[in-house]
Amino acid sequence: MTIADRGFHYVWPNSLGGTEDLQRWDWELLGSVVQGVIDRGGIGRPAALRLAVHIRGGEAEARLLQLEVEGMAAAWFDGKPESTYVAGGPGDGSDPIPGENPGMPTVTALKWPSGESAVLSVSAGAKGPTGGNVMLMGSHGTVYHDIGPSAIDGPESRSE
């Protein structure tokens, strides 16, 4: 399973048996559980999103991930943004070894007509585990989530 398939597994160390449990993690599930918090008024009106994620992969995976993340933000803020500003991105990076280094993270600032905002950093690289963090600030509460190593990263990057 890949990011492009909208899902990857989150690896948790099993502290009892020493073996790993693979628990399902994907953007859709994250989006859904956060939407539940929003719907029951758990954070008030969603106001600002801070998200940074880095995955093991290449430019294609990063582009798909960007779409995924922007879609999630649009769902939480209940509509499309009115303005977008982008800095960085794979085209900005030096790439001494083709295919080895997809380049710079894409940092995107989004603003919605009713004032909400988001700043998203999406990147992919050949090395290191998937990771990042999500923070959705609402008018009277905030959701935090840490994105951990993924099963698609391969065994060398998993928790011991």
């Binding site: 940074a52 994620v53 280094n101 990147s123 090395k127 990042g132 963090n133 600030m137 905030t142 935090y144």
Partner: peptide, 26 residues
């Protein structure tokens, strides 16, 4: 910014996330 006394388990989010060619670290 300022997000409210009950919006974080401590005094607030003070954090830096670094992304490099070898991965991400917070």
């Amino acid at each position: 910014g300022r997000i409210g006394a009950t919006s974080h388990p401590r005094g607030g989010q003070q954090r830096v996330t670094l992304i490099g060619s070898s991965g991400i670290a917070t």
